[in-house]
Design a protein around this nucleic acid. Structure first.
Length: 498
RNA sequence: GGUGGGAUGGCCGAGUGGCUAGGCUCAGCUCUGCAAAAGCUGCUACAGCGGUUCGAAUCCGCUUUCCACCUCCA
């Protein structure tokens, strides 16, 4: 089962069978957030996508080391040499220490990830915690002759590297074409080639974040941290490197350049890229002012939002599209997702309430086989490049069957005990472990709510037995006012929270 | 201008050269004291124009159109 996993590799532009470097183990690196501001929903989508990828790899039995960095230094705001550090710019504006900014937004990011039920990576390294490694890597690249110094800044020599390998392979472009078709940029005076990029930048005295280096006071370049940290924790060559699609042409292209220049190897075998979240067809981004913050979504407090949407509704909404497709945010789509999510979770709840007679012989072989087939399909769909929308479609088909068993519209004893047990195991683990969906209606109140509900529903049942429809309907209507749905079934009455 | 990716039924969103996506909405039926929930059924699409093929929404070409990247961005 595990060896049939296929992954779309940006590097080769095709789906490939996943073969880990070390059998049974996976090294996974994902580019994390720059903590100079709140993460918006577009950022979250990427981390949610890779969360499911991480979860499924674990589910398949792999021992995974998942590294996702926190960028707390570097990353210039401008493209020119006079650019300013994002972290220090924000610090100056807010009259705060850089470390204060970084701490605040790191905490905020972790809080949001927790709300979305995103698993914590095994390591969350920070750029400022790995200055030594970045200096070391810069030294090696200089020694290998693929970098040069100009006024205290170290640039990577892309032209020379391009003789070693195809620099533009990841983005599917030739360096020559890039030269002829790229707009002229200003302020590149120190660079020998237009696509050379800084490994280490000289810092001006007023620069808030700077460190001692062999080339004077400075700070690491835009892309070096990921190369240095992935190398440190996963090795010079590891299995999967991921991130948002917008990182392909510059950031990831230059990460490959750095690894080639330093270690003569491309860092990762499989490159996975998640697509963008759009709003009204346009990419969500901070600069366009169309970015929702997670808490605005949960509270419904953004002008474009008609209502609040829960974290699990949003998680489910994202998973209904493939990670490699754009997905458009709209109230209609989210409301549909909210209902679908509840339907799925209710089916799961119903499944856990079913009891099987224990008969090992299937009462209906066709039905038994159909269920087993659907359970296998869950794996087939996920093995096909983590196709969550198709997996969810299969889970909905199983939901219809579960609901029918639950409401005595179909006979549970059509299934053998083994099939029933497998249904519970697979359905539950896909909902809970693989897709990471939590039941938001569950409350930890020591069963008080459930006890009270049983009391109320018993009173209503008594009224119904007396044909006292007035009383029974008042109870039902009042519960509806509290957003509690009463469901009269053949085996009695159950309830659920809207 | 260059490069890449799209255009699917009322909405969202998968997918494959011939076989049901799925969810939401809507209509009908069953169940029900009535409803709700649930099950079943129906509405049935692949931007346009050519071409390849026994057969194409799926492959090729052209057209229209949208988006992303080429500047930090998940």
């Amino acid at each position: 089962m595990t060896n049939s996993l296929k992954i779309y590799n940006t590097l080769t532009r095709q789906k490939e069978t996943f073969v880990p470097i070390q059998e049974g183990r996976v090294g996974l690196y994902v580019c994390g957030p720059t903590v100079y501001n709140d993460v918006h929903m577009g950022n979250c989508r990427t981390f949610l996508s890779f969360d499911v990828i991480y979860r499924y790899l674990i589910h398949l039995g792999y021992k995974v080391r998942y590294v996702r960095n926190i960028t707390d230094a570097g990353h210039l705001t401008d493209d020119g040499d006079e650019g300013e550090d994002k972290i220090s710019k924000k610090a100056r504006i807010d009259q705060l220490e850089p470390m204060e900014i970084v701490h605040k937004y790191t905490m905020g990011f972790r809080d949001v990830m927790k709300q979305f039920n995103v698993l914590t990576p095994n390591i969350e390294p920070t750029a400022t915690g790995h200055i030594v490694e970045q200096i070391e890597m810069t030294k090696q690249i200089l020694q290998n002759g693929y970098a040069y110094e100009a006024n205290g800044t170290i640039y990577c020599d892309v032209d020379k590297l391009n003789q070693l390998y195809d620099y533009g392979q990841l983005s599917g472009r030739k360096l020559d074409d890039l030269y002829t078709n790229t707009r002229e940029l200003d302020g590149q005076s120190d660079k020998r080639g237009a696509f050379d990029f800084a490994l280490w930048k000289k810092a001006n005295p007023e620069h808030l974040q700077q460190w001692q280096s062999p080339w004077g006071m400075g700070f690491p370049g835009w892309h070096l941290e990921c190369s240095a940290m992935s190398r440190k924790y996963l090795g010079e060559r590891f299995d999967i490197h991921g991130g948002g699609m917008d990182l392909v042409p510059i950031h990831h292209t230059n990460e490959i350049a750095q690894s080639m220049a330093c270690c003569k190897t491309t860092p990762a075998n499989y490159w996975m890229h998640t697509n963008m979240l759009t709003v009204n067809g346009t990419k969500m981004s901070k600069s366009l002012n169309n970015a929702f913050l997670p808490h605005e979504l949960f509270a419904g407090s953004h002008p474009l939002l008609e209502q609040a949407y829960s974290p699990m509704t949003v998680r489910f909404f994202f998973l209904q599209a493939h990670y490699s497709s754009t997905i458009d945010f709209s109230n209609e789509a989210l409301q549909a997702a909210e209902k679908g999510y509840k339907r799925l979770m209710n089916a799961h709840k119903s499944l856990l309430q079913l009891t099987h007679s224990g008969n090992q012989t299937a009462g209906n072989n066709t039905e038994d086989k159909a269920v087993l087939q659907l359970l296998d399909e869950c794996y087939e769909r996920m093995n096909d490049d983590f196709n969550t929308p198709q997996t969810i479609a299969v889970l909905f088909e199983l939901s219809s069957k579960i609901n029918a068993y639950h409401n005595k519209q179909a006979n549970l004893n059509d299934l053998s005990k083994d099939t029933f047990d497998r249904l519970i195991t697979v359905f539950t683990s896909f909902i809970t472990n693989v897709l990471g969906l939590l039941d938001e209606t569950t409350t930890a109140d020591n069963g008080i709510t459930e006890g009270l509900m049983q009391l109320v529903l018993q009173m209503r049942t008594d009224a119904r037995n007396r044909k006292d429809w007035l009383t029974s309907d008042i109870i039902r209507d009042r519960l509806n006012d509290l957003k509690i749905t009463v469901k009269d079934g053949k085996d009695g009455t159950t309830w659920g929270v809207d």
